[in-house]
């Protein structure tokens, strides 16, 4: 049965606009906006993966930027040691981030709720300090890359080639993949574990294993965003792993609308636009951005998805917005 879902139409529209942008924007003399779009798309890829954790899994992570940084550093160190093929670099980034997620996830998932948040935050900070002490790769200052990855010698995956399209396709694949994943049996178990871990356990699912799998998948997706960041910025630095970056990702997911299909997408574009618009008004734009976050947290329940596309149907992910997942997080904690 193929029912046309509104979230598909929205994504289709966004995708079409993004596809048209590199052709239209230079014609009207606004080619610099393409860089902003790239920034937003990279943010969206990482945020979609975080939403898999928070929206679907109820796992409040405040250390997700670490995975972006690990992906970026894996690629940068690979490039620095002479590996040029982006597919090989991708494999390295996936392997390193997956392994890191497996170890830290197995530790962090011994707890839940607020403990989980603090522990992911702590591991994120550990990653940051470890990266700053990598003296051979620039330490605090980061590493400028003189050569970038190629696809079997071709420069399509660089800024001079078609990096924009590559990132757009990656975004589409990520969106589609996470959508499929959350509609699968895996996704249903994950949501069941979010809403009632004890019952899910008693039915016979290992909540820990499902959560850990989701954590590893989310970490690997974020690492892909990191790898592409390197291709765009031609530079890596520990700043990628600061906890403020993780906070930004959280802001994107929550403002966009938790557990909604296009929330992370809306949130990412919203953040980049707000930063750009406020930043063009005043240098101290954070003086406005901070209170804006407080107001959004207090009054905009359900996020942008809710404001832009109010109450679709009584369908599963949209209904379980911020409030419900959150209330649930409190319950889990009291139970454990």
């Amino acid at each position: 049965m193929m029912r046309v879902d509104r979230s598909f139409l929205v994504m289709g529209l966004v995708f079409a606009l993004l596809l048209a942008a590199p052709f239209v924007l230079p014609l009207i003399g606004q080619a610099y906006l393409l860089n902003l779009l790239i920034k937003a798309m990279l943010l969206a890829i990482a945020a979609i993966s975080l939403d898999l954790l928070i929206g679907q899994g109820g796992m409040l992570s405040l250390g997700h930027a670490a995975f972006v940084a690990i992906g970026a550093y894996a690629a940068a160190i690979g490039l620095d040691s002479g590996i040029e093929n982006i597919l090989v670099l991708l494999l390295i980034a996936l392997a390193v981030s997956g392994l890191y997620a497996l170890v830290t996830g197995a530790l962090a998932l011994r707890t839940s709720g607020i403990y989980f948040l603090m522990i992911t935050l702590a591991f994120g900070q550990m990653t940051y300090f470890t990266l700053t002490s990598l003296a051979p790769y620039g330490g605090d200052d980061g590493l400028t890359l003189w050569s970038l990855a190629t696809l079997f010698g071709s420069d399509v995956v660089q800024s001079g080639g078609h990096l924009y399209i590559v990132i757009l396709l990656t975004l589409l694949v990520t969106w589609w993949g996470v959508h499929r994943l959350s509609n699968s049996r895996f996704g249903r178990v994950l949501r069941a574990a979010r809403d009632n871990p004890e019952r899910t356990e008693i039915i016979g699912f290992s909540v820990f294993r499902y959560r850990l799998t989701a954590y590893v998948i989310a970490g690997m997706i974020a690492a892909v965003a990191g790898l592409l960041t390197v291709q765009q910025a031609e530079f890596v630095s520990p700043a990628l792993a600061t906890w403020q970056r993780s906070g930004d990702l959280l802001v994107v997911v929550v403002l966009g609308g938790l557990g909604t299909r296009n929330g992370a997408l809306f949130g990412a574009f919203f953040l980049v636009i707000v930063e750009e618009v406020l930043g063009s008004f005043m240098h101290e734009w954070r003086l406005l951005y901070g209170p804006l976050l407080v107001l959004m947290a207090l009054y905009a329940r359900g996020g942008l998805s809710h404001l832009l596309l109010p109450a679709p149907k009584v369908s599963d992910p949209a209904k379980s917005g911020a409030a419900k997942t959150g209330a649930h997080l409190v319950n889990t904690e009291q139970a454990t």
Binding site: L62, Q244, L250, L293, V294
Partner: peptide, 28 residues
């Protein structure tokens, strides 16, 4: 006071906003 009854995610978001604001204010 408005955040006590709310979920942790909202609390994190609001207090994150306060951090951003006060850090910038100190800088200004």
């Amino acid at each position: 006071r408005r955040l006590y009854g709310r979920d942790h995610l909202t609390q994190v978001l609001a207090t994150f906003g306060i951090i951003i604001f006060l850090n910038e204010l100190a800088k200004v």
